[in-house]
């Protein structure tokens, strides 16, 4: 009788110990889970930033997907010495050493307001496990030091003059390059499928800045097509003379009519004064391109899928 009671008592004690141990184990496990927060690092310019120039400051958090789905609060760094140009965030999933990780990045476009070593102090970001669990944890974001170099001030008048000169030079260069491109053969190394389409796109795009040049380039394309397909060419031939030569060459009537229409529209665009609209030009460009595409695919082949 006494032995049975001793056994019962021992079993009760053992059960209590086991329960206690389980409890401790749960606490310890929970504790270890609470400590496994996402890793935080920052990315700031390593080299000197010039005063007035923008740069990118990033706060990057990473964690293993197996740890759970963390919700990271929006960082609010103290950026009184900077102008906030833009702000954004992104999230990506990637694999590292066989494990799936999640990276959440907060991006800040900043511009320093003064020169010297400027500090973005350390701060905290709230973080919690989903779904809405217990008290949020905080991620420690280290401080960042941005070295800003002062740039000499230039008078506004000189800046405006310089900008005007640069803009005028750029416009002249564009016109010159467009004219050169119009007479230059396509790059031999460029794939044939891209050359024709890009030429027409270029012509369409150049109408805004140089309508006269664009119309002449479009005329050259049509004349080049006639030169290649019907062996009729000559810079001194008028459009009417080309059409007469085509008529004498026993050309298909429909094709003749189309070419006549194109030349009439081009003629009007070139010689009937200003007022040929962008839409009219785009339509004409499109019609000529389709016409050439149908008849001489090698000149403007359809792009590869």
């Amino acid at each position: 009788m006494r032995g049975g009671r001793r056994l019962q008592y021992a079993l009760m004690r053992l059960r209590t110990l086991l329960l206690l141990g389980e409890f401790l184990g749960i606490i310890l496990a929970g504790g270890s889970m609470a400590m496994a927060l996402p890793a935080v690092r920052i990315h700031a310019p390593a080299e000197t930033v010039k005063s007035g120039e923008g740069f990118v400051y990033e706060v990057i958090t990473e964690w293993k997907k197996s740890e759970g789905d963390y919700q990271i609060g929006l960082p609010s760094p103290a950026i009184e010495d900077f102008e906030l140009l833009r702000q954004g965030e992104s999230q990506e999933t990637f694999v590292r050493a066989g494990e799936t990780w999640i990276r959440k990045t907060f991006v800040f476009g900043l511009r320093p307001l003064k020169a010297g070593p400027l500090v973005i102090p350390a701060f905290k970001i709230p973080c919690s496990l989903l779904p809405g669990t217990a008290a949020a944890e905080f991620l420690e974001v280290p401080e960042a030091v941005i070295d800003v170099q002062d740039t000499p001030k230039i008078p506004v008048g000189i800046l405006i003059a310089a900008f005007t000169a640069i803009a005028a030079t750029a416009a002249l260069v564009v016109v010159f390059l467009n004219r050169r491109r119009a007479s230059a053969p396509p790059r031999p190394d460029a794939p044939a499928s891209d050359q024709g389409l890009s030429r027409f796109q270029d012509i369409e795009g150049s109408f805004q800045s140089d309508p006269s040049g664009a119309i002449l380039r479009l005329t050259s394309e049509l004349r080049a097509f006639i030169g290649v397909t019907h062996k009729i060419s000559g810079a001194s031939l008028t459009d009417r003379e080309m059409l007469l030569s085509l008529a004498a060459a026993d050309l298909d009537r429909e094709e003749q009519a189309s070419l006549k229409s194109f030349f009439t529209r081009l003629e009007e665009a070139k010689f009937a004064g200003p007022g040929f609209s962008k839409i009219e030009f785009e339509n004409l460009c499109r019609d000529i391109r389709k016409f050439i595409e149908l008849r001489q695919p090698s000149l403007i082949p359809t792009p590869r899928p």
Partner: peptide
């Protein structure tokens, strides 16, 4: 035509 073309000149 109300405008001159190179063909008129030629």
């Amino acid at each position: 035509r109300g405008y001159v073309t190179p063909d008129d000149v030629k």
